[in-house]
Design a protein around this nucleic acid. Sequence first.
RNA 1: UGGGGUGUCGUCUAAGGGUAGGACAGCGGACUCUGGAUCCGCCGGUCGUGGUUCGAAUCCACGCACCCCAGCCA
Length: 548
Amino acid sequence: MGLVPECFITEIVERDLKEGRYAKLITRFPPEPNGYLHIGHARSILLNFGLAQDYGGECNLRFDDTNPETEKEEYARAIEEDVRWLGFRPTRVLYASDYFETMYQCALTLIREGKAYVDDLPEEEMSALRAQGKPSPYRNRSVEENLELFERMRRGEFPTGSRVLRAKIDPAHPNFKLRDPVLYRIVHAPHYHVGDRWVIYPMYDFAHPLEDFIEGVTHSLCTLEFENNRAIYDWVIENLKGKCGLPLSPRPHQYEFARLDLSHTVLSKRKLIKLVEGGYVSGWDDPRLPTLRALRRRGVRPEAILEFVRKTGISRNEAQIEIDLFEEVVRDDLNPIAPRVLGVVDPLKVVLTNYEGEEWLQAPYWPRDIPKEGTRPLPFSQELYIERADFSLNPPKGWKRLAPGQRVRLRHAYVLELEDVVEEGGEVKLLKARIVPGTLGANPEEGPKPKGVIHWVSARHALPVEFRLYNRLFLTKDPEEGGDFLKNLNPEALVVKRGFIEPSVAQDPKDTRYQLERLGYFWQDPVDSRPEALVMNRIVPLKEGYKA
RNA sequence: UGGGGUGUCGUCUAAGGGUAGGACAGCGGACUCUGGAUCCGCCGGUCGUGGUUCGAAUCCACGCACCCCAGCCA
């Protein structure tokens, strides 16, 4: 079983390899360094790197950096870091901008062959003519004039945006992408990677096929919106193969797959930026976000992200996946590796009337169904905290927790029986209760057996914790519902609670992921948590069996 | 409008002329010192209309719906 789920692309790859079309599979993950990676990118990453791994090929990380105005070194580094965090090691880390000279030579070749021309038309006029399917008045300049103009463009003799180099294909082609697409534009702006060496920059449609061809990419995988661009991709390669140092064959081929879309969140760069810059979240790594850095900070493991991508498959159907599936995969990933501990997120104090002193119980880290061993000392004493939600004065039918006249089991400890409720201003302030003697590891000898089990901590021993409870970012499946995605933001996407956790965690490695029994999976926030002031993120809640 | 795509349970995804299957969600049950996990069961689908065929999700025709393109972004 490979990393990549079987799909139309693995079929193509297998066919091409079997027929000897390529000696070795070469793919690439080609992000533009103008933003941070999010979970949607994970599909492309898994596809490209996974394919290389599955079929003994190579996969490069290549920055598609042909637009100096939007790209930054900082983004490139963050992207590389995220790719590695997911567990992939690029064969090489490459930059499209390193090929600018070759691309320039390719452009000259096209000009010499009468397949490209310099156009002086202002942007709006070009767009208007293109819409009408009419040729530019500059379309039939001589090769000599085109050559001279293009060289002068490179030398910086013309201002930004004043001229472009266009492919001479067909001004009236039904596919608008083929109506003499722009190959080069003038931009007087420094480039984060190659500095100020260039004032002309190639367009995606010209650069991308050349990048792939130069690197020997065999399968150029991209998302559906580039489908129309494939015609230019092929045009560029067919017209330049065997020239400018490019091989005759084999040549790369482009295949498109559907983007990964998730419900209850946003994956568009524009909206993500709005959330960050508008202060709706604390930054690009705010655990409410679907960015890889945010998921990492939240506590999601890369294994879970990859498994999620595998489970959703790769197809050409534009599909939005329900976030429940993602959460389920995260739980599945954590369940076998997260030791169980007790913590209380919303504390309600309980004073025992028939217990004094303290004792240290040995509590197993793992439930029966997980074949792991290990226990930790768990202090028990007269004053405890239980979860406020685990007590009810007027319990509904089916209530299995603490209530007047209803016993509960304290996890790993005694059976508890309510004696008195101290209220203040209509709010329950304190519970007085007694322990049923002889119920440590045994059922009560008389009276009813407890119906349920609740978690607790010893008040005197517990460590205070700031709990950050994360929920879905948006209230609606589709954040755009109603027209303004900001209006659908979930005000409870982050709920902060002051609670307690059992003292054993102080002994654990800081990056331990726990299951707080009956609450969910948690770990210490890698940014804000300190030993003397614990901050714990809820990675994902447990599946809630109880429906009120 | 032209061009390019996509339509299978609520949501993803298989089935490539031969019993429409799986996962997630939902519902019900078993088990349980986590209302977790696990196990069992149920619910539920081929965009429409014709055609070809012994047999169609699959092939053909005509529709319909949705997405993408008409940046000197990628």
